[in-house]
Structures are given as C-alpha cells and as structure tokens.
Design a protein around this nucleic acid. Structure first.
Lengths: 119, 119
DNA sequence: TTGTCATATGAACAACTGTTCATATGACAA
DNA sequence: TTGTCATATGAACAGTTGTTCATATGACAA
C-alpha cells in the first residue's frame, strides 16, 4: 500500500488520500494570504482594538485609552489592520476615526469565541 | 469635550464612546485565548495542513507528502494544532491518523477566504 | 509665521516562531 | 531480544514580531 512520490521524495502511506488532498490543496499564495489575515487577528492588543471598534468608531487616543496601550503602539497596530483592510478610517481635522471595514471580523470573532468556549 | 482617565493617565477625546467601549471590552484572558486560536491559523504550513484535513483523515507522513514539508516539521506543527484542539487523532498500530476536531475551522476558513477575496 | 495637538513613522531591542538536525519513544515483526 | 517503522521531542538558530523612544508629519489656531 505504501508509495513514493517523485515530486518531493517523501514516502507516504495512503496514496489515494494523498493524491486527492493534493488535488484540492489551496495554492501557496492563498495559503499565505489566509495566514496573513489570521496573523492580523493573532495578537491580544489587536483583538482588543477590534473589539473596541465593534459598535462604534474611535480615534487613536480613544483606542489607546480603552485598551490601556500607548498611542504609538496603537498607531503601529492600526497600520497593520489598515494594510489587511480590517479597519477603515476617515479624517476630521487632526483626528482620525477608525472603524471596522466589513463584518467578516464579527463572524470570525464569533467563531473564535465559540471555539475557545468548547474547552 | 476632552477628558482625562485617572486609571491610565492617557488623555482621550470622546469620553462617552470610550466609557462604553470599556464596559463591553473583552477581558484579558479571553483576548489572549482568542489571539492564541488565530495564531494557530496564522502560518501557511498549518493552513495547508488543516486544508488537507478538510475532507479526510491523514497520517503524519501523508500530511508531509501533501504539503511538501518534513515529517518532523509537520509533527511539531501538529502538536500546536492538538494543543489548540483544532485537530484530533486516533492510533492504528504505529500510525497516527489526524482529523479536524470540529467545524469551526471550516467556517473560519470560509470567512477568511471571503475576506481576502474582497481585495 | 509659530506653536500645539493628533497621529504616523523609523530605529532599536527583547521576545517569540518555525524549521532543521539529532535523538528518543512506542508499536510491531522476526 | 533485536531491528525497523512512524512519530515525537529537544536543542539550536535565523527570521519575525510588538513594544518603546525619539522624531516627523499634517492640520489647525493665534
């Protein structure tokens, strides 16, 4: 039942399952993009920031006050959230208001909380 | 309209919004647990491993063959996936078969893919 | 202009992550 | 027992991450 795959030289046991899994495998770019999205959610500071934005827009120093971090740290993290398009912003004078970009984050949080609940 | 919060000494601008956000804030433990869950999904190798397990169980060397990584690397990553209860396993002789622990991962992937699709 | 406020950015640094290589374990066969 | 196979684990190391501190930008007021 054992078989060899020339491609990588790694031996495997269940050829049919491996072949099928390979055919449906996500491609490298998408895997990286998906990992990058989750990476953006993979830090307690950013989790709290997004949580704070669930029902309202907030400016940078509001966010800093809510989660108890420096404004500089918050600003750095906001850049990452912007890059991953998890938040959007609008300017009003000197103040930048940040809010959630779409509601995928809400669903992701719900599923995540649901998962950690099943301990 | 500006106000000071004694607690952390950080000035903020929109007191009402900050107070409300604070009242609904996720606690430190949950934020960390949520971040840890997302951290587990935040690596392309693990993304591919979970993707391979979407519709079938696979053993360690199968997984290594599917994603093109060493069996050692896969085994290390499986430990993390086990710790976060994203995969479960059963033994059959010397072989360990891994499979998804619940369907939260499926929903998380769907939402994640949906998000990266909105570029 | 000059000054101040809100935010952004760059450099630096400790802490963490994922891989590789070597070794260990545990199950089975001979 | 001994040997082998499938998997797990530990140490080590480069690469990455999140924070802090200092500095820069950009908007508004005087």
């Amino acid at each position: 039942m054992a078989a060899e795959f020339d491609k990588c030289g790694i031996s495997c046991i269940h050829e049919a399952a491996v072949t099928e899994a390979r055919e449906h495998m996500i491609n490298e770019e998408k895997a990286q993009a998906l990992a990058d999205t989750f990476k953006t959610l993979a830090d307690p500071t950013r989790v709290k920031m997004l949580f704070a934005l669930l029902n309202r827009e907030l400016c940078v120093c509001d966010l800093a006050a809510v989660i108890g971090a420096s404004e500089s740290a918050v600003s750095h993290q906001l850049r990452m959230l912007r890059t991953q398009r998890l938040v959007k912003f609008r300017r009003e004078g000197k103040i930048m208001f940040y809010s959630l970009n779409d509601n995928h984050i809400i669903t992701l949080f719900e599923q995540g909380i649901d998962h950690i609940g099943h301990s």
